[in-house]
Amino acid sequence: MIRVLIADDEAMIRSALVALLNLEPDLEVIAECADGAQALETIQQVKPDVCLLDLEMPGLDGVEVVEQLHKKLVNTRCVVVTRHARPGVLRRALASGVAGFLPKSRGAGEVAQVIRQVANGARYVDPEIAASALSQEPSPLTARELDVLRAGKKGETTTQISKALLLAPGTVRNHISTILAKTGARTRQQATDIALENGWL
């Protein structure tokens, strides 16, 4: 029996998935969570074989949950599902150690099959998303510019970013100006959103 945890902030979708997956003879949903922080805590407690994580959740998103699990050396296999299957997000997900990635448009039978594959040690990436990811342009931002965006992802001030990266505040401001020019964003937050959407962060 494959023990599954489902995390999705949309109650109707979560309930439907729990009901449908529990109909599968070899799958058992042992926990369901409404956000990323709850999922992270519950995964460490119940140790499911496979986690089905929504990408867009409040607090920690699905990929951030996987990143935290890897830092804590928890080796539960994770599948991320998303309504907005952008190629850049796929790159970010794979870099975090996600074992499966598919859009929410897939049926419960297909989701169950992906869970089985992942539980058996395979990786699964939706073919359409994979094809789009291969054709997407790489990030125009340098590694240091990405560091600046990463350090300010939660709205940190220029001073806080400069302390975190051991850079002068003026240097951080210069990086931010360059980032805005390269991304066409009006604000640092907008540039961060663009970078996340494209999977550069």
Rank of each mutant, 00 (worst) to 15 (best):
A39M: 04
A39P: 04
A39F: 03
T42M: 11
T42A: 01
T42Q: 13
I43G: 06
Q44N: 02
Q44R: 14
Q44K: 15
V46Q: 11
V46P: 01
V46E: 08
V46S: 08
K47N: 08
P48S: 04
D49G: 05
V50D: 00
C51F: 00
C51N: 05
L52F: 10
L52R: 00
L53V: 07
L53Q: 01
E56G: 00
P58I: 01
P58D: 04
P58V: 02
G59V: 02
L60Y: 07
V63D: 00
V63C: 02
E64F: 01
V65Q: 06
V65A: 06
V65M: 07
E67I: 04
E67A: 13
L69T: 08
L69S: 07
H70C: 02
V74P: 03
T76I: 04
T76A: 11
R77H: 10
C78T: 04
C78G: 00
V79R: 02
V79M: 06
V79T: 05
V79L: 12
V80E: 08
V80H: 07
V80K: 06
V81W: 01
V81R: 01
T82M: 05
T82N: 04
R83S: 14
H84M: 12
H84E: 12
A85K: 03
A85S: 15
R86N: 11
R86I: 02
R86P: 00
P87M: 05
G88R: 13
G88W: 11
V89S: 08
R91F: 04
R91S: 11
R91Y: 07
R92N: 13
L94V: 13
A95P: 05
S96P: 07
S96G: 04
S96C: 01
S96Q: 05
S96R: 09
G97D: 12
G97K: 08
G97H: 08
G97Y: 11
G97C: 09
V98K: 08
V98E: 12
V98T: 12
A99S: 13
A99I: 00
A99Y: 04
A99E: 14
G100M: 05
F101T: 07
L102C: 14
P103Y: 08
P103G: 11
P103C: 09
K104Y: 06
K104E: 10
K104D: 03
S105G: 09
A108Q: 09
G109I: 09
G109R: 14
G109E: 15
G109T: 10
G109W: 06
G109H: 12
E110T: 13
V111P: 02
V111T: 15
A112D: 10
A112H: 10
A112W: 09
A112C: 08
A112R: 10
A112T: 12
Q113P: 00
V114C: 04
I115F: 05
R116K: 15
R116Y: 06
R116N: 09
Q117R: 15
V118M: 11
A119M: 07
N120R: 13
N120S: 12
R123E: 12
R123K: 13
R123T: 15
Y124W: 15
Y124G: 11
P127Y: 06
P127N: 09
A130N: 12
A130I: 02
